[in-house]
Nucleic acid binder design. Structure first.
Lengths: 363, 363
DNA sequence: CACGCCTGGTTAAACGTTTAACCACTCGTT
DNA sequence: AACGAGTGGTTAAACGTTTAACCAGGCGTG
């Protein structure tokens, strides 16, 4: 492969000059610049990243550390991160913590050793496992000391309460996620706040993020005493769908179900899940631009960016039959204008309206 | 960070000696080795990978290039690849081709520039885009010149035919995938071969890997004239499920459906999909060991490893009502011993019985 | 006109390894 | 006793960059 030396020789110039035109470090005569550029193109020269890293002490590589790649939340995220990192001339070192704090710490150490320019980190738990000494931006699960980009879970919770109300529901059940996870806690808060005074939350239960529901929950679902159940998660929602089905309750005719996340298969279950979509693509893209900002100015206090979420209406939630008004068909009824989003608790962020990533399953 | 020099100084020895004990390059006195090791431990020394790469011309890094991370096929694969690469002391550079040959070629070039030790490559198409000059093992979509590890799609096809027959089906429909993809072609071949003389394939249609079925197919599904439809894919299987449902045909009571891939949500659709599972974890792990073998002996002719697949019985396929024999209940009927797998066309591989990765969705 | 100052370029050191070449010994042989 | 062959260690070069230090000439200024 062509080295700096070869280019210099071909252009009849010293290697320092070539380096300077490459990095714009120093001014050069237009004529010389032309010769150098021409030589570079002709030889197909690309700098050796290892030599660069050795010399400068940092690489043009980002690290991405996620708790568990098979969690459907992540693929879209890493895709977005990789794409925008690559667009900015950075490669991506991806590591999977396998949901273990130990493997996570090891991964962080490895990345430090690789002199990554910075890492994008989705911590396995919110234990503030601060570590090595490079720029970090966390995604989805903020760690106090670092930058963070998160979806507006609180707004998401509010959105489902609002939607339930708009559809005409009054008595609802709530299956909230593990209180220990900030995301779950915020969804719950947002839901409860928006429900206050309008929705009667006839029962609430904290469940793990899984479609295997605790027995008491499936029992309760057989006699729901509500017309809609709001779920912590799309996975939880399919658990609910199952329980409802085996209790011979029809969705959404008898009870509506709303999920959270809009995982790729949310459209594949029966009935297709009404849910709230996290802007995974934007989350990833903004994480890397945030990381670059952090690298550019390391001294700034930790920033937080909160991106808006979006309610996706599909078939699992509809107007409750009990209050259906004659002549007012759900199909033809004009939808109320989408509820204006209340700013969340951490309004640092200015989410852009970037369209969500389109993902599609195949072969 | 501690450098070789520091270790040498601390151990009262030259840097060459430290390097030698690190790499086992040359014999050293036990006493000296002890001192060096102690110094290394005390200083928490880790070699600078960039210096190593610069000197040796190759890095302890593998590349992984996939066509599209949001394809549910891949997350489990990259997880397995990352885990086993890491276990062998290698980091992983992940790139996503976004299903574009152009981005794929660019990614390959970047990896070459990064002096990766080798790359694991799932080509976007089977166009033999041979390229850079480093060890490559392809996964799922073999390219003539390189090593390959693939799932036994042919056997998979045979498995579904066999299963259909065992359940008592005789008239079946086949929705095969794009003939241009080797995997789809092999599934079809295997299916047809195993069906020959036992199953009546009343219709066949080639469809894209998508749950949006062509109109004529959904029309056909309204009057299926068969008791089971074998699908190219889990995605097309859910398309079939939908079509059947809107034709008021009950699955599996009136018509059975079998998918392919066992995507993570195959258990979430209604009814849960009977399908064939690809050993994604083993595929990934074997790909990296194969890559290491290739690196160790570059002169060997291209190898091919074919891993067995597994039929996952869930609820979408059952005995056809039409031929149910009195007293012979599907629940109690002894299942025939699992069909012995016929060796596939490329029997180079000796798939090990490694258990497939357990993947689970959460928050 | 001599001086200092830009301007555009070169030389050489340094980053942290690996590894070939070299060297001082100790042994076993003759 | 002299020699050759290990044995266990060191010295120094090289990998391909970046960048500080240096330098030659042109030019406005006193």
């Amino acid at each position: 492969m062509a080295r700096l030396k070869d280019v210099a020789q071909a252009a009849g110039v010293s290697i320092a000059t070539v380096s300077n035109v490459l990095n714009g470090t120093k001014a050069v005569t237009p004529e010389v610049e032309r010769r150098v550029l021409e030589a570079i193109a002709r030889l197909g020269y690309h700098p050796n990243p290892h030599a660069q890293s050795l010399r400068t002490g940092h690489s043009r590589t980002f690290g991405l550390l996620v708790p568990d790649l098979t969690n459907p939340y992540f693929p879209a995220l890493v895709q977005a991160v990789e794409a925008t990192a690559r667009a900015h001339g950075h490669a991506l070192l991806v590591m999977d913590a396998g949901n273990e704090a130990e493997r996570e710490a090891e991964a962080l150490a490895l990345m430090a050793n690789y002199r990554v320019a910075g890492v994008i980190w989705v911590p396995v738990a919110d234990r503030g496992t601060a570590n090595g000494h490079f720029p970090i931006v966390t995604v989805d699960r903020p760690v106090a000391a670092y930058d963070a980009v998160v979806a507006d879970h609180r707004q998401g919770g509010a959105l489902v309460a609002q939607h339930a109300f708009d559809l005409g529901h009054r008595r609802v059940g709530l299956l909230s996620g593990p209180r220990a996870l900030p995301s779950a806690a915020l969804r719950r808060e947002g839901f409860l706040a928006a429900a206050a005074g309008r929705l009667d939350v006839v029962w609430e239960r904290e469940v793990p993020f899984s479609s295997d529901l605790p027995p008491d929950v499936v029992a309760r679902l057989a006699e729901p005493e509500c017309t809609l159940v709001a779920c912590a998660n799309d996975a939880v929602a399919v658990g609910v769908l199952r329980a409802l089905r085996s209790a011979n309750l029809r969705v959404p005719e008898q009870v509506s179900v709303i999920g959270f996340d809009d995982v790729p298969w949310a459209d594949f279950v029966e009935p297709a899940l009404t849910t709230v979509r996290q802007p995974l693509g934007a989350l990833g893209a903004d994480a890397v631009t945030m990381l670059q900002a952090r690298i550019a100015s390391p001294e700034l206090p930790p920033q937080r960016l909160t991106l808006p979420v979006e309610l996706i209406e599909r078939r699992s939630a509809a107007r409750p039959v009990s209050i259906r008004v004659a002549g007012d068909d759900a199909r033809t009824r004009p939808r109320p204008s989408p509820p204006r989003v209340a700013a969340s608790d951490a309004p640092t962020g200015e989410g852009d309206g970037r369209p969500a990533l389109h993902t599609e399953a195949c072969g």
